[in-house]
Simulated scan of single mutants.
Amino acid sequence: MACRVVPDDPSAEVPHLGPEDLHALNRLTAYNRPELEGSDRRCGCFHCGSVFPAREVISWMAEKDGADTALCPHCSCDSVIFETPAFPLSTALLTTLYLGWFGPEYEGRKRVATYAPSFSYYDDWLRQGVPFRMGSRPSDEAVGEVDLFREFGCDDAGGMVRIVTCGPRDLVLVDERGRALPYTIMSGQQRLVRDLVEKYGPRLRGLIADPNDWKLRLIVART
């Protein structure tokens, strides 16, 4: 899916949307040609995560009962919103709307994903638009999945990880930034992971795609 996801600055506010907010944002997606056509308003698509100026919209969905509706120039979906004083546009906002409106699609993409960028905690996951940026790479093969236990008092974190063996018993998950993550592989499943580490060596990696799942997908890069 072609898109232009722009991660937010770490200081950007993560929206907490109530039912009235969702209704108001949904209204922005319809009958919006008069507001957008030929303008420089900042827009975003909560189907693919792209951010773009309104002038890039060239396709419109004809409506029988009002003005035409913008179609995203990157994914052709009618899920384009524009920035307003009440709702500053952000990747965290687009991600939140995507999870709400396209949840089944997200779950399907997550089930086959073999890549996602690293994130430090849940709000960082939203700000980076990880659900838009995860994907399935043809060069990778999923060879299993295990459950994780998160250490008490620690933030969620994830993305792509290395699995490091420390001594005869410990397995440590290290992210792309070199940080040890606060997760422990469930004891009954550590033997599987150790066997895969022995079999594949550094070709074996892990993926924590969703901070709410506490799952580690085991992935091997095909030679």
Rank of each mutant, 00 (worst) to 15 (best):
D40T: 11
S139R: 15
Q190Y: 08
D40P: 03
R4N: 15
C3I: 02
V164Y: 09
F82L: 05
P10A: 11
L36Y: 00
P19D: 11
P211M: 06
N212F: 12
Y31L: 11
F52A: 03
A142D: 04
Y183H: 05
S187W: 08
D78S: 15
T95S: 11
M160I: 13
F46Y: 14
V57M: 05
L181R: 03
I58N: 12
P211E: 06
G158Y: 00
H47D: 13
D155S: 13
M1G: 13
D140E: 13
E13V: 14
E141P: 00
F87A: 04
W101T: 01
D40Y: 08
R222E: 09
V143L: 02
D175G: 02
R33P: 03
V143Y: 04
V220E: 05
S39M: 04
F149M: 11
R41K: 14
N26T: 08
T84K: 04
E13F: 11
Y183R: 02
D170Y: 06
R133A: 12
H16E: 15
V220R: 02
R55D: 01
R179N: 13
A62N: 13
K64L: 13
E105D: 14
K215I: 09
G201N: 10
R133T: 15
G66I: 08
T184G: 03
G144E: 03
E56R: 12
L97K: 01
D21G: 05
P182Y: 10
P182N: 07
P85S: 10
G108W: 09
R133F: 09
L196V: 08
A113F: 00
S11V: 11
G108Q: 15
G108L: 13
R217M: 08
G18E: 11
A142L: 13
V143M: 02
A2K: 15
A54H: 01
D195T: 09
D170N: 10
L93Q: 07
D78V: 00
R33F: 06
G167Q: 05
D123F: 10
A86W: 06
M186T: 07
D9L: 10
L99N: 04
A221N: 11
L22W: 06
A70N: 07
G158M: 02
E56P: 03
L171V: 05
I58D: 13
Y121L: 07
R109E: 14
I163N: 05
G159S: 07
E83M: 04
G206A: 10
A24E: 15
R4T: 14
H74E: 12
G66Y: 08
V161E: 00
W125I: 02
P15I: 01
S59W: 12
P202V: 12
A30H: 05
A86S: 14
P10T: 09
R203L: 14
S59D: 15
G129A: 04
S90A: 08
D9C: 10
R4E: 11
